[in-house]
Nucleic acid binder design. Sequence first.
DNA 1: CGTGAGTTTGACCAGTCGGTCAAATCAAGA
DNA 2: TCTTGATTTGACCGACTGGTCAAACTCACG
Lengths: 205, 205
Amino acid sequence: MEDAAPQTRIQTRNRKTILSAGLDVFSAHGFRGATLDQIASTAGLSKPNLLYYFPSKEAVYTALLDDLLVTWLDPLRALDPAGEPIAEILAYAQRKLMMSRDYPRESRLFANEILQGAPLVGPVLHTELRALVDDRATVLQGWMDDGLIRRTDPVHLIFSIWSLTQHYADFDVQIRAVLDDDDPFPGAECFLDQLYRSLLEPRQR
Amino acid sequence: MEDAAPQTRIQTRNRKTILSAGLDVFSAHGFRGATLDQIASTAGLSKPNLLYYFPSKEAVYTALLDDLLVTWLDPLRALDPAGEPIAEILAYAQRKLMMSRDYPRESRLFANEILQGAPLVGPVLHTELRALVDDRATVLQGWMDDGLIRRTDPVHLIFSIWSLTQHYADFDVQIRAVLDDDDPFPGAECFLDQLYRSLLEPRQR
DNA sequence: CGTGAGTTTGACCAGTCGGTCAAATCAAGA
DNA sequence: TCTTGATTTGACCGACTGGTCAAACTCACG
């Protein structure tokens, strides 16, 4: 009836703290740059104790990435083909921006994985991600064909949303250096809205 | 008369191959994830031989970042306050995009450094970068005040150019997974032009 | 040719890496 | 209470890390 894993209370608690510690360390140093000692001490455990819950360093990493990939593309999946086009696209951009604000470690973990050549998620990119993007690009193309939004390259439009929103998490240090530590997100929210509105709103003719 | 360093022919050659090898390895794995053995073997040298030319791993890294920081901001410096506003901004975006195409390793090296908290370039960001951005933001603001381009947040505008252009180098693997290995740059060039034209061109009133 | 500076290398070092293991500790039910 | 399984740990392993060093090699130039 139940899933395979038995999971005592201590197990679930420690698994969670280990994953959080792993997220801290992997997102800050990448897979190769992270060490088990770092993760263990961040989690408040000894190294052998950590390895009691995960069989290897890679196991912690893959557990994190598996969790991440499921939720990371949800905002794009949630883009509703039946909705009002511009509102849908703006809402998608805002959702992604809020993910950068609320889950910057996850964004940086993903950025590190891609930067290092996507050794682990590479296959998923070629299958699931590609299929999802192709599908949503078709929806966007349909909206353009119907004259509901202006014509542009739908795939590069999606890329631009990824890049603009994730930038605020991944390059946080740089942005805060320029902005003197002000919170960049209110300004970003407003800018994104204006940017995509002016790109997509059909011109009066 | 000359600079301090004597520099035989062998020295200049080996220094160059070491820096190129270091760029390969550091940009792919970050500072902590890179190893001297990796860099040395990529350069075709033994590890002690590499250390004959650079005193430490960190010395190779800082040499690379110093070189990089000088040239990385040149496109923004080259933005001419006396030029035609929209043409200047579009040209700036194109210059940065071409740097992502022609120097992706440099872009990824920088991305890694920032992702890992900018331990080395942090101070430079707070001084030089901040001053440059402030200055150019003032130029953009002036153009907006004069009605030459539409009003928007000048700093976020600059951020958006950084993010959109560097994305094509840093997330190359992801982009090529979605595009089935097609060259993304022609499409990106076109999309960027359209995006910033529609954002910045003053509307007929 | 020599000869001395410039260059290269094998052997080595102390510290860290991911990971193992047996023994110790803990917790909860009979 | 005793017992049994879950949990934790100290000691340890071989491989690798950044880095040193003295000895060897190479090469231009007198």
